[in-house]
Computed example of a mutant assay.
Amino acid sequence: MDDLESIKQKRMQELKQSLEQKQYPSSPVTITDASFDEFVSKYSLVLVDCWAPWCGPCRMLSPVLDEMATEMQGKVVFGKLNVDEEKMTAVNFGIASIPAMLIFKEGKFVDKLIGAVPKQNIIQKLQPYM
């Protein structure tokens, strides 16, 4: 009977993790000034990419973040904020250079990365918050 209970508990845990993962987007979500607070509060760990269409390094970083969003689904949610269109959030966080990545844990701002940094650097920055 103990073996059966152990298997049941393990399967329940797997199903729970699977369900949680499905609720996390597998690609970056476009966010606005209006949706910003709700977005960063909705998930336990969020990285917001502050970018603009004319920014070359931002365009270089975009496919990396797309890939990471898929790989880290269920752990980190990625958002994209166009600072040309959504100026208030950029001003609130003192974004002077882009790309800039803002990291939020449980809705609170905890860290930031500036520039088109390699994927491994982004992972290292996120690791302590996972």
Rank of each mutant, 00 (worst) to 15 (best):
L15R: 09
E85A: 15
M130Q: 08
K42P: 04
S97D: 08
V110K: 08
L126E: 03
Q9S: 14
K16W: 11
P63R: 01
V76H: 01
S62P: 04
I114V: 09
L4A: 14
E14P: 04
L102T: 02
L126Y: 00
Q73N: 00
K75S: 11
K42R: 15
I98R: 07
V29A: 04
E38H: 09
F93W: 06
E14I: 13
I98L: 00
I103L: 10
K119T: 00
F39N: 05
V29N: 00
W51Y: 03
K119Q: 08
K16E: 12
V117T: 05
D111L: 09
N82E: 02
T32L: 01
A100L: 11
D66F: 06
F109C: 08
V76I: 03
G79K: 06
K80Y: 03
L19T: 10
V48G: 07
P53C: 05
Q124N: 15
S35M: 01
M130F: 11
V40H: 05
P25N: 05
Q17D: 13
L45R: 13
D111R: 12
S18C: 14
L45D: 01
N92F: 09
A34V: 07
R11Y: 15
I123Y: 06
A96P: 10
A100D: 08
V76Y: 01
S35Y: 08
D33R: 06
T32K: 08
V40A: 03
D3W: 11
G74K: 01
Q124W: 11
P28W: 08
G107P: 14
D33W: 03
V64A: 05
K119F: 02
P118C: 06
E5L: 14
V117K: 07
Q120A: 12
P25R: 04
G79Q: 12
D33H: 06
G56V: 15
P57D: 08
K42A: 09
M72E: 11
C50M: 02
K75W: 07
A69H: 05
Y129N: 05
G56P: 06
Q23P: 09
L61W: 06
K105I: 04
L45V: 10
G74F: 10
K87E: 14
D84T: 02
T32S: 14
K125I: 01
I122A: 00
E86D: 08
G79T: 01
I122Q: 04
S41C: 09
D84Q: 05
E67M: 11
R59F: 06
K108C: 10
R11G: 04
T30Q: 14
T70A: 13
P63A: 00
E20I: 15
A52D: 07
I7Y: 07
L113Q: 13
K125G: 03
Q127K: 14
K112Y: 07
S62H: 09
D33N: 02
K87V: 13
Y129V: 01
C58T: 05
C58N: 06
D2L: 15
Q21T: 15
S6T: 14
K10R: 10
L61C: 01
A96V: 15
E5K: 14
N92M: 03
G74D: 02
T32D: 00
L65W: 03
Y129D: 00
V83D: 01
M60G: 05
A100Q: 09
W54I: 03
L81I: 12
D111W: 03
S26E: 13
P118N: 02
C58Q: 00
N82K: 02
S26P: 11
W51E: 00
I7S: 12
L65T: 05
Q13D: 15
K16N: 12
E5I: 11
